[in-house]
Design a protein around this nucleic acid. Sequence first.
DNA 1: GCCGTTTTCGGCCCGACTGTTTTCAGTCG
Length: 575
Amino acid sequence: MTRENLAEVLEEIALLLELKAENPFKVRAYRQGAEAVRNHDGDILQRAKDNDLAGIKGIGDALRDKLHELASTGRLGFHEKLRAEFPAGLFELFDLQGLGPKKIKVLYETLAVGSIADLKTACDEGKVAVLPGFGAKTQTKILEAIALKQTFADSFLLGGISPLVEEILDLLRTHPEISRVSAAGSYRRGKETVHDLDFLVATREPALVCEDFTTLPQVASVIVCGDTKASVRLKNGLQCDLRAVSNAQFPFALQYFTGSKEHNVAIRSLALKQGLSLNEYGFTGETAGDHEIHEEADIYRALGLDFIPPEIRENRGEIEAAAEHTLPRLINLEQLRGTFHNHTTASDGRDTLAAMADEAMDLGLQYLGIADHSKSSFQANGLEETRLLEQIEAIRTLNAGYENFRLFAGNEVDILKDGTLDFPDEILARLDYCVASVHASFTLTEEEMTRRICRAMENEHVTMLGHVTGRLLLRREPYLVNHAMIIDCAAETRTIIELNCSPQRLDMDWRWWKRARDKGVLCAINPDAHSTMGLHHLGLGVRLARKGWLRKQDVFNTRPLAEVEAFFKLPKSRR
DNA sequence: GCCGTTTTCGGCCCGACTGTTTTCAGTCG
């Protein structure tokens, strides 16, 4: 049982209640309960077990009891009873574009459709088109949605799509009728994966712009095209929405479509308390005329708030902080001075030590840490002791030739199954620093994995912990760890935690960084680069660090070279 | 089902687009 399990059960209950046409506000309460579980800043699972959930916003008496039952017994009678009323395959129908609870309910009750396979058969036989409220077009759309789901994954990596986003932004900027352009939605907020793209433009000719948007070269098919919005499917399968508004509406629309939904709901209810109604086009209400709005920041100011950077608009305390003027001054890419976790041809990297150093210098960095794999990662050509010592020598030699730049000799040492390290202490002591990572035995229990990692962090030579959960976004689940305990252990042992900014990792997850920061744990933004191009992912890392509320002082690799050198020479207890 | 310096009861964000309608329901974001 994990935090995510708790949230998923609440969401499934919401869906089931929706299918039963329950009170929509009750449905929403379950959804908000799931959000509250996900966003809670402590060990919610333990608190649920202890029946200690009082005072958490969004979780009242009923959800408190249900979460307690679920966490302490692993099951929830209410949920199981609801589930038994519908076939399990019904859930996959919600993944189909254009199908919601009402239509699914009709399909189930009249045609006994209980899965995507059933639905396909019913459509092929023409049974769906004749249902009341349905029609030939709906049937065709459903078949298209089924085909689409089978063709494409529904999510994309943030780091994978940003070149495409920039291309489309550039094309929109050149349109003669468009004056302002921005990406919005989860992309602008820096979510690690996105399932659609939102673009916003200011124009006097919205219908024309929408039309033109559907003819961009990246577009594969048009989903909808109206006077103020258009939706298309790009050639890579990504859905992409455009909203066209006036110049005066633009800041409101940008705020609105950037979200998150949770952030906006909270912002709107705050506005209502001040007699202002806020929608994507502007303020209405008695005092609406009092505010001159030219950009997003003006909207927040009108509500008595400091400007909230898009990355932290998740309703996780940013609105309260903005009201109290205590928002963090978030880190910027320009503040990075170096980075630590990088590979070369010595293990599984594509480029040499010298090439990696040159690229780092071109990026304006003062130092670059080399951390090739250790010997147990034989699949990655990990270094055994003699090759590691040779690499240290090669780095010393290269350093002699650099001015105002330094390579650090490190290693990404495997954390073995029992928490010991792949090299003995006397070898590790010859390195400038060391990243410790888990690369095997992923299936330990959460307790075992947490103990394993904490034991590694207790080693004097372990400078930083690599990719905390080993997740590969959209490909491999994280291994189970207790984040709260790992953060506490990092604080105690003065071990830095890495923000691995390889696009498919982005690990540790952004949701944990504020907690780590508040415990005094330092972050190192590391690209885990396996080539010179990999170093360019630092910008992605900074976005995720911002999403985790990190400031310059929270990120170790903002420190200048001399400070990093001095830091490495101190015993961990004095860092 | 949750919540409360307008409420312990009566609210709970809201607009655009589509398709199936004969004035609107469902879905999406």
